[in-house]
Amino acid sequence: MSESTSAIYVSMATVLLVWVTIAIYLARVSARLRSLQRDVRSDPPGSAQRPEETAPQPAVAPDPPSVTADQWTWMAWYAALTYGCVEAPGMLKWLQPHPKAAGQLAG
């Protein structure tokens, strides 16, 4: 592997490190937020103080999971990173000016 090729892979790995770190943080924090919001909804303030006043609630099925904006965002990042990692070296090579062949110069 040439020094240039090695440098671009190191750059890509560094960018990936940043995204993965932030992705893990955001995924964990978002999951915690959803969990807390569920807890708060299922246990409104003061409910435990007046159990006798609380009528039994019919069982409600939880909301079905759907593709959220967060998930679309992760997919977009994933697509961008895949595209960047797989295609960038080829694109860079393609963007470089190609020297004309000796025959073309002479002709």
């Binding site: 750059s11 679309w72 965002t73 694109m91």
Partner: peptide
């Protein structure tokens, strides 16, 4: 959130495809 994701996806692509290697440091 979707816009932020798309924006940063664009930046990631541009980082490797749009900007040229820097003289002296290359792709680093």
């Amino acid at each position: 959130k979707l816009l932020v994701g798309m924006w940063l996806a664009g930046v990631t692509i541009a980082t490797f495809v749009v900007i040229p290697p820097y003289q002296g440091l290359g792709d680093a």
